[in-house]
Design a protein around this nucleic acid. Structure first.
Lengths: 116, 116
DNA sequence: CCGAAAAGAAACGCTTCCGTAACGGTCTGA
DNA sequence: TCAGACCGTTACGGAAGCGTTTCTTTTCGG
């Protein structure tokens, strides 16, 4: 079920959503953080630091720091993998799900408002 | 010509585009910078520092700094308004247009790839 | 003609992010 | 069993962002 967009629609959608996100959200996540958050919530678990680093093409400390920040915001949680105690399993939270639900609504709303 | 998206499509689209943007682009613009860039290129000029600050709901130095950064990257230019020399007019560049063209293509591509 | 207002930039101290490198805890296979 | 690999975190110096405040230039009304 592909979504067909014109160049104008694509950029206008991105524009309006980004703008609203900047205006409404004081948390100001970076693009990397948003990518990580979306990945955790949209791709089946388990998620590890190393795995995320590989997928995003960044170093491990970047993931650790992003998880620190988003952990403080209550958007994700971490816990040791009891089967292999070297690993850390990244888990979802209610607040994180809520955050993405709002983002989804925003995208849908702005998509509906598109003209041209 | 509205675009109707399901919640799943909206978030998956945002996910895949953000992910590709992180992977491909080493410039790593913030969400604010992206908003400013899109605004400059999608909304008819003239654009001023004060105007952008009001639209994004941020302070003027935020805009000045963002323009400094994106100016260094060649994505925008500034020049004094000769009619009112207090103002600075923000202008588009070839590189900036190219950058957004690629972003638009990325959004369109990822939209086409959507399943479910 | 001059003082107030406006616009943008610069300065300041602070926070957060970055990449590289080093570190401890855990596993594993020779 | 233990040396090496693996995993995530922490440390470090540096770069860039933030909001507030101050400054310079320019405009404009009385």
């Amino acid at each position: 079920m592909p979504v067909e967009l014109t160049a104008s629609q694509a950029l206008n959608l991105w524009h309006s959503v980004s703008l609203e996100q900047v205006r409404v959200d004081n948390r100001d996540l970076t693009l990397r953080q948003i990518s990580i958050l979306l990945h955790i919530y949209l791709v089946p678990p388990p998620h590890t630091v190393r795995g995320l680093a590989g997928i995003l093409g960044v170093t491990k400390p970047v993931i650790t720091r992003a998880l620190d920040t988003m952990g403080d915001l209550g958007l994700v949680t971490r816990s040791r993998d009891e089967r292999d105690k070297r690993n850390v399993i990244i888990k979802r939270t209610v607040d994180g799900a809520l955050y993405l639900e709002k983002l989804g609504d925003l995208i849908i709303d702005q998509g509906r408002k598109l003209s041209i």
